[in-house]
Design a protein around this nucleic acid. Structure first.
Lengths: 316, 316
DNA sequence: TAAAAATACTCCATAGGTATTTTAT
DNA sequence: ATAAAATACCTATGGAGTATTTTTA
């Protein structure tokens, strides 16, 4: 409905007169002059199309309609007070629902370790976790369906803040009995990518593996939908792959058919970072979340150097 | 609380942006330009001291605090809508509580007859009746404790509207067996006021009786607190009195000890009228009440001539 | 005469407009 | 290049002031 110039101040005038039964004293209580208050009352009466006060001799009375109007005006003012009341829970900005995305090659390995510390650091936080491909998660982030996303750079997106969480080396996962499995450590150049099993198109881990081994022009033919499927394929000898350290399991698992080997090349690692919209202001909550995650990297990963919360890496 | 210049318009802007997710379309829906709306949003955010909207790329998102603010803003606007909603019950202005005063010499004789017609004419009317002396009732009327008073002129009060209801003749009530009781009609001049029983000081009926019989200088010695007490005193032969026709009962009552006689003098009557504050605006309800009462005078009384509802006899 | 609200007027703060710039896609 | 919000700047409404009048007890 059109508010027809009705102002909250006018309603304050109204209830003030009702309370004091006197225009002059009501004006004083509102800190305005009597004529100003009278004008406000007149305005409201004109808007309502009825007389709220009966100006009796030396006293102000409420009309029947006026009593109802005053009651309703009080409700409006009470609602306005609640509107203006400071938002509580300022003590912990990281409370309530927080929608966090994570790429599928991170989520299952990060959260089992990070959830407990998160819960103890921010007991009132209610995490809603969504897994998916980077492109999907970033799209959801942009439209506001997610508050932040755990992903792995590089990320060619503007308008996002990206804060490093941790760095984890890749390990070679290779079927037991393959020649390379005999070595303590392996060089990337020794890998024949035509024997590799990779994740499907769209997983950044696939791209990272491919770029690390770009030297060999050969292309792999086997793909898997998830890291766990991929490990199962390695176990049955379909090929080898590069796994992030957090995804490495005990060699006894998978029937002891997989061997994990360190890679000699320093480039053989990935960065894991938290991304959110640069337009998110204030972003103390996301930064608090990032801080907790950075302090609790999954096993095998190294925490990223501590981060200056005042630094805005919008340019990334 | 000080409303710090917060306007209902601003809140409309706020929820419009929340609903449209777009400043431009929100502005259009509010019928203002986009910069004007932006300024309003900015103002509210400054007042609240927090960011309500996240201006993301090509879309507007709600911040966490903003979601709460929007919810509260909706409450304020809903309350404001209710405030601006026309007062219902406009069909019958004479509904709800109406505080009606009546002098003690009228109330008990008028209302038994008038209540039923009043109820059928205005079913939703809730009459609160208060009886007392004219002076007391008028004082209550002036301070707003009563909405109207049924009384008997003359009334030397300014600022009151007085509308005639009916006119009722006085009757002589005299103990059976007294000489005057033998006459069909009686002349005022034949009354010896030293033999009269009157109401106590303050009852207008007492004054009216005295002024009608002022010719005789003698003063009565017996007084009664109510007309019914007075009749009982007449029945036991304490004296005679003038009674308004509506207070006359069947001669068989009071053990048949009272005789009622008409008075020859044309002045021997009283006017009954309804009075209310001239400042009462609108006064359709009181005038409606007066109309019903005028159409249903108590037995023995004659309705006052019909009244022009547009006539304001403020000067009375 | 005193008290209280209404009226008359003046002023300026600001809500609103248009034109333009900035920013991100 | 386009879309969208922010900024700059101008205008005019109306909210608030002071001074005065009207009304009534």
């Amino acid at each position: 409905m059109a508010m027809r110039g009705l102002s909250l101040r006018d309603l304050e005038y109204l209830v003030a007169v009702a309370e004091h039964g006197h225009f002059g004293r009501a004006a004083a209580s509102c800190g305005v002059s009597q004529p100003s208050l009278s004008a406000g009352i007149r305005k409201v009466e004109d808007i309502l199309g009825l007389r709220v006060f009966e100006r009796a001799s030396r006293r102000v009375l409420l009309t029947r309609d006026g009593a109802l109007a005053i009651e309703r005006a009080r409700h409006v003012l009470a609602a306005a007070d609640r509107f203006l009341a400071p938002v509580a829970e300022a003590d912990d900005p990281l409370s309530g629902v927080f929608r966090l995305g994570a790429i599928t090659t991170v989520g299952p390995y990060l959260f089992p370790h990070a959830l407990a510390p998160l819960r103890s650091a921010h007991p009132r936080l209610e995490l809603q976790i969504e897994e998916g491909l980077t492109s999907h998660l970033v799209a959801r982030l942009r439209v506001g369906a997610l508050d932040a996303v755990v992903l792995s750079p590089p990320l060619a997106e503007v308008g996002l803040v990206i804060e490093p969480l941790y760095r984890e080396p890749f390990r070679l996962a290779i079927p037991r009995g393959w020649p390379l499995a005999a070595q303590e450590t392996v060089a990337l150049d020794d890998l024949d990518m035509s024997k590799a099993v990779l994740l499907e198109e769209g997983h950044c881990l696939r791209d990272q593996s491919l770029s690390l081994c770009a030297a060999t022009g050969a292309r792999p033919c086997h793909t898997a939908m998830s890291l766990e499927t991929l490990k199962a394929m390695i176990a049955v000898g379909e090929g080898f792959s590069l796994l992030p350290a957090s995804a490495v399991t005990d060699e006894a698992s998978h029937g002891g058919l997989i061997r994990y080997r360190a890679l000699r090349d320093q480039r053989a690692h990935r960065q894991v970072a938290l991304a959110w919209r640069a337009s998110r202001q204030p972003d103390r909550d996301v930064r608090l979340l990032a801080a907790v995650l950075r302090r609790h990297p999954p096993p095998g990963a190294e925490a990223a150097p501590d981060f200056d919360p005042n630094f805005d890496n919008r340019s990334m």
